[in-house]
Design a protein around this nucleic acid. Structure first.
Lengths: 217, 217
DNA sequence: CTATTTTATGAACAAATGTTCATTTTTAAA
DNA sequence: TTTAAAAATGAACATTTGTTCATAAAATAG
């Protein structure tokens, strides 16, 4: 499981701290924050509850730390340090790669847990809403809408409202991701939803692209 | 809910029972089920906690009753007893009316509370998932997909995968509904999202309709 | 190895919570 | 008005829960 590297990078303490976070996230995702007790967390990592208080002031601080980590989670760093100019010219391939990222994240345990935590707490926790809004919505939707604008100027896609396009592109992905989470909870097959990720890209691109054939007439 | 007979209408007892449900729903939606205490509910309706136990066996039964009522909620009865044949010929008007229903429901207090409760508990409560799946997903998505199929045969819209269309049509509505809920929590303006409901219909219909003009060439 | 710091333990605590129940109050029926 | 049923109250209860703290064990530095 854990290795002691020669130069003692992970100073044992921070190792435990991360284990607490990892365990808590898993439990919060399944039972919700409020219903998860400090004893649950400690029990799941084979330790007494009082041990946790050497690493976190209290239960709230565990949640707050997890929320803070959301900003570096994969959902919110889709376009990180990517150049808009460069993205535009990819056309449909860019959309396909975003959809694939969403699909893969649906099946990544860590990310799935973050997603569930987010969805369960977002209605009660203003800070989560802030992060969701600033990092997911602003960052991704606004940025993609900029990319669409560029595509319009390059006559890759039909001219229309770029912000609408970005919303219309993301919202089904978001929805399908939730469907996958729900199906997995009941151990049902996800295959029909999984295929939707690609179908969405095809359907969407077909509807916005400028058909070179057509422009000949 | 339950009727005594023709003669005694609100029999006081059932009045209180409904007040408990109404108050609980409001609180569950804001704080979540687990974080809402029996004292919270009683306090909000100006009564002592022990009084609730004359109407419900325990706290769980309150939640279960609310969940049971979900099936008669407006989200899940979109198409109730509507004839598919009749719906098809409405074309875009049908989609517009569905979108409007979603939009209006976002601003109906009762429905908003149900939506929040659903979203917060759906990851923990299998019964909610069942109802969501059977009544929202199966009933609405499947039914709309049938309508799309009819539209294709009548050459109102282009031929494609009807189930995909239904998913692509509903998921943005679902997403925008959530956005409205979140914005209202922070008392932010919802106008930009509200306009999305109609824009979505326009964008979507434009992409699936068969353009009579075009078919002349 | 020894000393010092960090981490874990066991026990305990106060507060919060769901629930019960005997009793009183209110409502509805006669 | 009298009476029976329904609903509300006050007080108590057993648990659960978050948190503290003195002490013991373990890790780290000198």
């Amino acid at each position: 499981m854990n290795d002691e590297s020669v130069t003692s990078l992970p100073t044992k303490g921070s190792k435990t701290k991360e284990k607490i976070l990892k365990t808590s996230l898993k439990l919060f995702a399944v039972k919700g924050y409020k219903a998860t007790t400090v004893r649950d967390i400690a029990g799941a990592m084979g330790v007494k509850q009082s041990a946790l208080y050497n690493h976190f002031k209290n239960k709230d601080e565990i949640l707050e730390t997890l929320i803070g980590n959301l900003t570096s989670s994969a959902i919110v760093t889709l376009f990180e340090d990517k150049d808009p100019q460069e993205l535009q010219i990819q056309g449909k391939a860019l959309l396909a790669s975003i959809a694939t990222t969403f699909k893969l994240l649906s099946f990544d345990g860590q990310n799935e847990a973050l997603y569930k935590l987010l969805m369960q707490e977002i209605f009660r926790n203003e800070r989560i809403r802030e992060i969701y809004n600033e990092h997911f919505y602003q960052e991704n939707v606004k940025k993609l809408s900029g990319v669409f604008f560029g595509m319009m100027q390059n006559e890759l896609i039909e001219s229309s409202d770029p912000l609408l396009l970005a919303n219309e592109f993301f919202s089904p992905l978001f929805f399908y991701q939730m469907q996958v989470s729900l199906l997995k909870l009941d151990k049902k097959s996800t295959s029909s939803v999984v295929s939707m990720f690609e179908k969405h890209v095809d359907f969407f691109w077909e509807n916005i692209k400028i058909d070179k054939q057509e422009s000949l007439f």
